[in-house]
Design a protein around this nucleic acid. Structure first.
Lengths: 250, 250
DNA sequence: TCAAAAGTGTTTGGATTACACCCATGG
DNA sequence: CCATGGGTGTAATCCAAACACTTTTGA
């Protein structure tokens, strides 16, 4: 590392987004169709290159998200997933991407991408299917994002990010069930989330009945983390072969 | 995003390391003294720029780690922390850094940096002290790395990464106590770690007595995750103000 | 009145805590 | 024999799973 910074190899830096929502009883991810080579016509994560020298990574992710979804910025959760930098991940030139995951509620205008690209919600099960092809290393990124959201629900209150501004306990439970792909006991779930201080704030209102007893409506509370955590029922993911240096997970 | 990739702004990409060890009953981090401006003479995380167009990020982190510590690559754990890209984090030019955390055992040759820079172990408590100055945004990165290792010990078996090849249950407990800054009940800890299948493998050997009953020696077992987790005693970090978009944590 | 969905009560078992107590070695 | 640290036993407690049961609406 010498004083002459001009000799440093410079690299194209992209910011990509894994925007997740719960929609039609499925965890879905926003994908766009690429209009240019490479991977023209293939589905890819929305994203783009860092706009200018003064743009923060987080700001770039927010900008991309606003461009792609036209979404109210206050109604979402956005955090960095990780950076991906395999040397051959883009055939044109060296591109390192910093990926973000976003959790958004089921949007009124979900398909309307602000960009010229056609954006669409795709169930993650389909996106990760063996027969599905995604551009670049985006299938691996989708897999990492799905694992991130699944574990986040265990120890944070972020499931409310997928819900409308006011929601019932059953709405929230269906988010958990959909993201985890597990059925939860309705009664124990109710006790757990209403008994955790700061998770939910009752509005006093009731949901319009769907044929049964009307459910109380809640807003997200001030708590961000869950103590103790809400654990997935079948968390038998123990005893992998052996940890390796430079593990994939973050 | 057009076909002409040549117009894309290119950015200097660094890879920095937060190398952590447990040493003298303290969680310590490897810092180097910068020999050049900016921040000449200040302590900083070891790291460097991506060497060439064909180097993977993970490989770059491994290379840097080998250069800085001369360490046996098989005896460590390395994972990506996150990318940092505030536009003003380097006064010379735009530099985005991808940071990695490494957990290493107490090394026989801890101070010998392979590079010309003088490397030294610094207790994280001192590195994070309000009066301490670190180069760039490295103090924030150190804080993130410390939080990462603390939470990793809760739900993984990675505490063994800080231990020598063979170790006693007390050695392992002292790793937990040092990283968390909490005292744990020796007897309950013993039951927990020996009762978790795959955490420890008994060698059959005994440690040379220090004046008491000799302790059994163990090697790391095949398990990587802990079910159920080993929770910190005083985990009352609940109910923060409110989650914000673009949270810091990963 | 019945079906459907919301919400409460109760039992039980697993895991953690907080201890008392025994074991094996060095001096 | 005694101090020192290693390791086991046990009761209380907390928490979550399982499931019976009551409440409140729409048809």
């Amino acid at each position: 590392m010498t004083d002459s910074t001009w000799q440093i190899p410079r690299i194209a830096l992209a910011v990509d987004l894994a925007v997740l929502t719960v929609r039609n009883n499925a965890l879905q991810i926003l994908l766009v169709e690429r209009g240019v080579d490479p991977w023209r016509g293939q589905r890819a994560l929305p994203g783009g290159f860092l706009a200018n020298d003064q743009e923060d990574l987080d700001a770039a992710a927010e900008r991309e998200l606003a461009e792609e979804t036209g979404l109210d910025i206050s109604r979402l959760y956005l955090e960095q997933l990780r950076a991906y930098g395999a040397p051959d991940r883009d055939p044109r030139s060296r591109v390192v991407t910093v990926c973000y995951v976003a959790f958004v509620p089921d949007l009124p205008t979900p398909e309307a991408g602000g960009d010229a690209q056609t954006a669409a919600w795709v169930p993650v099960q389909a996106a990760l299917d063996h027969d599905t092809r995604l551009a670049f290393d985006h299938k691996r990124i989708v897999a990492d994002a799905v694992e991130r959201v699944r574990s986040k629900l265990e120890y944070t209150t972020l499931a409310t990010s997928f819900c409308p501004p006011e929601f019932t306990v059953t709405d929230l439970r269906q988010v958990y069930e959909t993201v985890w792909g597990e059925t939860l006991d309705q009664r124990n779930f109710h006790r757990k989330v209403t008994g955790t201080a700061g998770f939910l704030v009752a509005t006093g209102e009731q949901a319009t009945g769907q044929g049964g007893r009307p459910a109380a409506l809640y807003r997200p509370g001030p708590a961000t983390t869950l103590h103790p955590a809400m654990l997935r029922p079948t968390t038998s993911a123990n005893n992998q072969p052996r940890r390796i240096p430079c593990a994939v997970d973050a």
